[in-house]
């Protein structure tokens, strides 16, 4: 992005991929314990755009992220997710990643006995379809690790094992840089980071945006990260739905007023729906 007017969002020029989420309904739990968490999510993210999803704790933001990535814990009960027209929901987890989706997790998982370097290379090989050339690969990894201010000894550690919160998030962004996805979902990548780490991690995301027309779905609870990563759109997410959408100015409104009004509206709406439902059942 060289100037604001040249952004794909602003010009409407086709720049890469489109992720389309339509009326997505998701439950967790089985049988009688099944609980609907996503209640009809609609969202379109184009390559080059950055969408911030902001919502209170428990509103279903991680559920949305995991559902797109294909975590087995979540059951899709309705709706569609497509990437460039392809049915994402029909793909296995690894196929989704190879199709160009990437999820930076809120809580990255420890994998004992698997070194970061082995993991990264295996992942890169899987995503690109061939083993990366050793020399350029080592250089790429080193360069990006240095940019993320990660010690090179890091590569020999086991994946996420004993990592601090900040190290885990840097490691997630390192993967984003190396795997070069078309769509990146960043689930609270900012939470638990001090100001320095937040800046370093944000710069990593901005480098990815500068290098390729990646679409970014930036999930966050706070507005803080939006000072470093500028969103084109802001969506307010409450009780499993997008309840308001706008431009960056919406973030400022949330900063000033919080989620209270939305949460109240949403509760009232849910109550109305429940009454309506009961009425039809009688």
């Amino acid at each position: 992005m060289t100037s604001p007017t040249a952004t794909p969002a602003a010009t409407g020029l086709k720049a890469g991929s489109v992720l389309e989420i339509r009326d997505l309904h998701v439950t967790v739990g089985d049988g009688d314990d099944a609980k609907e968490i996503l209640r009809g999510v609609d969202l379109t993210v184009r390559g080059g755009e950055t969408h911030a999803i902001m919502g209170p704790n428990g509103s279903g933001k991680s559920t949305l992220a995991y559902s797109i990535a294909g975590h087995p814990k979540y059951t899709i009960t309705g709706g569609t997710v497509t990437l460039d027209g392809e049915d994402v929901l029909a793909m296995t987890v690894d196929e989704r990643a190879r199709a160009g989706l990437f999820l930076a997790m809120q809580y990255p998982v420890e994998v004992p006995g698997v070194s970061v370097s082995n993991f990264l290379r295996t992942a890169a090989t899987a995503v690109t379809g061939e083993a990366p050339k050793l020399r350029t690969w080592v250089k790429d990894v080193r360069t990006e690790m240095a940019a993320l201010e990660m010690d090179s000894a890091f590569a020999e550690r086991n994946v996420n094992e004993g990592f601090s919160g900040g190290e885990k998030k840097r490691h997630e962004i390192l993967q984003m840089r190396l795997l070069k996805p078309k769509m990146a979902i960043l689930d609270e990548t900012d939470s638990g980071l001090d100001v320095d780490a937040l800046r370093i991690v944000s710069e990593g995301v901005n480098r990815a945006k500068a290098d390729s027309p990646v679409g970014v779905l930036l999930i966050t609870h706070y507005t803080r990260i939006l000072r470093y990563i500028k969103p084109d759109f802001v969506h307010v997410f409450v009780a499993g739905r997008v309840v308001e959408e706008g431009g960056p100015e919406l973030a400022q409104k949330l900063e000033d007023e919080g989620y209270a009004a939305y949460v109240k509206d949403s509760a009232e709406q849910a109550a109305t729906e429940k009454t309506a439902l009961e009425a039809t059942q009688q």
Partner: peptide, 18 residues
Amino acid sequence: QLFYLCSRGIDAETARRL
């Protein structure tokens, strides 16, 4: 663990071996 590895494009069989 398997989900984490698979979400990086690694197929389930390779993930299990890892």
